[in-house]
Simulated scan of single mutants.
Amino acid sequence: MNQPLEADTTARRAILDRLNTRTISAPPLPDVDPSQVITYDDPVQEFLDKLSLVGGEATFVDAAPQAEEVLRQIPVFREAKRVVSVFPEAVPGTMSTDGIDDPHAFATIDWMIARGEFMVAENGAIWIDGNTLPHRVLLFIAQYLAIIVSQSQIVSNMHQAYDRIENYDGRYGVFVSGPSKTADIEQSLVLGAHGCRKLQVIIVRD
C-alpha cells in the first residue's frame, strides 16, 4: 500500500525564511487628484441604486429604534429564533455572545444586526468597525444581515472611504455589501452562497 507523502515542513520553512529576508523595492503609490475621482450630487440616491444593483435592500427610518418595526415586516425575521444584535437599543437580540469563545457556536444564527459607520455611494458598501463585533464571523455566518447606518455618514467613493479609515486602529474592519453571491456553477447566479442570503440596510435620517 502506498503511504501518503508527508509535507517537508523544514524545506517549506527554509523557503519562507529566505523570502522574508529579501527586500523588494516597490514604486510609490500615485498621488490621487481629488478633482479626477467620481463624486455625486446625491450620494444617498447613488448608494441606493448601487445597493439595489448588487441585491441589497434599504429602508429609511426617523430613529434607530424604528428599525425593529421594519424588520418585523420581513417574514423570515418574524420567524427567527436566534438573533444576535450589537445594536440592542435599536433591535434587541435573542442570543447573547457573552462567554462564547468558539465561533462555531454561531453556526445556526438566523439574523445578525450590525452597526454601520458610513456608506460608500459608488459601490453600495458599508464600513463596519470590527470593535463593535464580539466575533468577526458574525457578519458572514448569519443567514440574514441587517445593518443600521446614519444617512449623514456617507462618502462618494472609495478614495474618500480610505481617507476616512486611514488612521483606523481597530483590530478588524470590513466593507460589506451584498447579499453574498456567486455564479461559478453553470454561470447561474446564486444568492447566499458564501454569506448572508439577504442584506437589509436601515438608514436613519438625520
Rank of each mutant, 00 (worst) to 15 (best):
M1E: 08
E6V: 15
E6S: 14
T9G: 08
T10L: 13
R13S: 15
A14G: 03
R18S: 15
T23K: 05
I24Y: 01
I24A: 02
P34Q: 00
S35T: 10
T39K: 05
Q45E: 12
F47L: 01
L48E: 11
L48W: 00
D49E: 11
K50D: 09
G56I: 12
F60W: 05
Q66E: 15
A67Q: 04
R72Q: 11
Q73L: 11
P75I: 11
F77S: 08
E79F: 12
K81C: 13
V83H: 01
S85P: 02
S85M: 07
V86T: 08
F87G: 08
P88V: 12
G93S: 07
T97S: 10
T97N: 02
P103D: 12
I109Q: 00
F118V: 14
V120M: 06
V120Y: 00
D129L: 04
L133W: 01
H135Y: 08
V137C: 13
L139P: 09
A142Q: 02
L145V: 03
L145F: 01
I147T: 09
I147E: 11
S150P: 01
S156V: 01
A161E: 00
Y168G: 12
Y172V: 03
Y172P: 02
Y172G: 10
V174W: 07
V174E: 10
T182L: 07
A183K: 05
A183S: 11
I185G: 08
E186R: 13
E186V: 14
V190N: 06
G195H: 06
G195N: 04
V201R: 05
V201L: 14
I203Q: 07
D206I: 04
